[in-house]
Computed example of a mutant assay.
Amino acid sequence: MLKYLLIAVVVIWLLYSPILRRARQLKRQQRPAAPSATPGPAKPPQVEDMVACAHCGVHLPASEACRDTAGRSYCSAAHRDAGPTSH
């Protein structure tokens, strides 16, 4: 009885192993190819001028500052509306 069970297992393995191998190949082919070029060195961070808020004195990047008509920099619209303070 054990002999027949062993033969059945071997026959099933012989039938299904090529099918499983082919399925794995198809799965690998469907995956997107990894980028072949390695990424270069990271770009250095951009250096930006810092400005002080004319109201509270907090320093912030110039691109994030709110400006009034006179060209003074502020950290927020509320401080711009409040106007400059003398320090």
Rank of each mutant, 00 (worst) to 15 (best):
L2I: 12
K3M: 10
K3H: 06
L6D: 09
I7A: 15
I7S: 09
A8G: 04
V11N: 00
I12R: 06
I12V: 14
W13P: 04
W13G: 13
W13R: 06
W13T: 15
L14K: 05
L14A: 15
L14R: 05
L14D: 07
L14M: 13
L15N: 02
Y16A: 15
P18W: 00
P18R: 01
I19S: 04
I19N: 02
I19H: 03
L20D: 11
L20T: 11
R21E: 11
R22Y: 07
R22Q: 14
A23F: 11
R24F: 09
R24V: 05
R24H: 08
Q25E: 11
K27G: 09
K27M: 09
K27W: 01
Q29V: 10
R31F: 03
R31Q: 15
A33C: 04
P35G: 05
P35D: 05
S36H: 09
A37E: 11
A37L: 13
T38H: 12
T38K: 14
G40C: 08
P41H: 08
P41W: 06
A42E: 15
P45W: 00
P45Y: 00
V47H: 13
V47R: 15
E48D: 05
E48P: 01
E48L: 06
D49G: 13
D49E: 15
M50C: 08
M50E: 13
M50Q: 15
V51S: 04
A52H: 05
C53Q: 01
A54W: 06
H55E: 05
C56E: 03
G57L: 00
G57E: 00
V58H: 12
H59A: 11
L60E: 08
P61F: 01
A62D: 07
E64Y: 09
C66Y: 13
R67A: 03
D68V: 00
D68I: 00
D68Q: 00
G71E: 03
R72T: 03
Y74L: 02
Y74E: 01
A77L: 13
A78W: 08
H79T: 05
R80K: 04
R80V: 01
D81K: 15
D81L: 14
A82I: 04
G83I: 06
G83Q: 01
G83V: 03
T85R: 14
S86G: 10
